[in-house]
Design a protein around this nucleic acid. Structure first.
Length: 281
DNA sequence: CGTTGTCTAGAAGTTACCTCA
DNA sequence: AATGAGGTAACTTCTAGACAA
């Protein structure tokens, strides 16, 4: 799936992201959520006002829990969504999204459109009202995200309950949060690669210059007189040590000549230490 | 055992709303 | 007051993986 794209190269340090979360400024007074418990057991946050729209909350609850229409709507156009929530009937079957795309037989869902159907004017015209999450809600979501960047259905429902949101809202928040994290990480990776390219360009320039100088030197007649013959080092392929000709050890191993000019793989050549360029988390 | 269809969760991309300079 | 940009909630579409028939 899409993970394939990530694997293609920009996955240099993905996964770190959730730890170097940019949102660390969030107030620390929110305690971490213990995932082996239910959200409901965590105090205080139950008081959070949902987007300071109490009527909305009521409406939402109703739409999500008790409305027969909600079931209809999710069957008609969003059945996949409600099923995927993996939630039992009493948990939440929330059509908290603008399912309808305007077809007449979806008209009745509209009433339960995105976030409690504000501004639904007649004639099937939908408008999604965007609710701002409260600071506390965001902070708690952030904290939760730091621990787990995905939620299973139970956790989702529990968290939703705790924050007085719908499970769908929590799900969407986590999806968007993962997307933001990835975007941020991609930016960091791009920066890193850019620096690598710069470094390589610089190194390439340096080597070309060096090669040019060597060529010039080679062309001058007095050069040959002063030149010492190139040293051939003998290296044992099994122990990977430079071998002396008299070594007993190398009676059993067969040494091979190596070019002293070529840096061994894994060695840092001329200060090209890309690890040093890697962004630290 | 391999194939096919269905379902689900998540990623990616997009839209629309809100806030703020 | 108008407006454009940036942030983000909500949405759609696509895909991989799991699972059953």
């Amino acid at each position: 799936m899409m993970m394939g794209k990530e694997d293609l190269g920009l996955s240099l340090s993905l996964g770190v992201s959730q730890h170097n979360n940019p949102s660390s400024s969030i107030s620390n007074n929110l305690h971490r959520f213990p995932w082996n418990q239910t959200f409901a057991s965590t105090p205080d946050l139950g008081k959070i006002d949902v987007n300071s729209l109490p009527s909305t909350v009521d409406c939402e609850e109703e739409a999500g829990v008790s409305s027969p229409n909600s079931t209809i709507s999710s069957t008609i156009s969003g059945g996949k969504r409600s099923e995927r929530e993996g939630i039992s009937d009493h948990d939440e079957i929330t059509p908290d999204r603008g399912y309808s795309r305007g077809t007449s037989d979806e008209e009745e869902d509209i009433e339960f459109g995105p976030i409690c159907s504000q501004d639904i004017s007649g004639g099937g015209e939908t408008s999604r009202k965007k609710l701002r999450l409260s600071k506390d809600q965001s902070a708690f979501l952030e904290d939760t995200f730091k621990e787990h960047n995905t939620l299973n259905p139970k956790q989702k429902v529990a968290l939703a309950k705790k924050l007085n949101m719908t499970a769908r809202q929590v799900e969407v928040w986590f999806q968007n949060r993962r997307a933001r994290t990835k975007l941020k990480q991609t930016e960091v990776d791009c920066e890193y690669l850019k620096r690598c390219v710069e470094k390589l360009t610089e190194e390439n320039r340096r080597l070309q210059k060096e090669a040019m100088e060597l060529r010039t030197l080679k062309l001058s007649p007095q050069f040959y007189g002063q030149m010492t013959p190139p040293t051939t080092l003998i290296m044992c392929p099994s122990c990977e040590r430079v071998a002396g000709p008299s070594s007993n050890h190398h009676q059993t191993h067969r040494p091979v000549a190596i070019n002293p000019w070529v840096a061994r793989a894994g060695q840092v050549a001329h200060g090209l230490d890309f690890e040093a360029l890697r962004p630290r988390s």
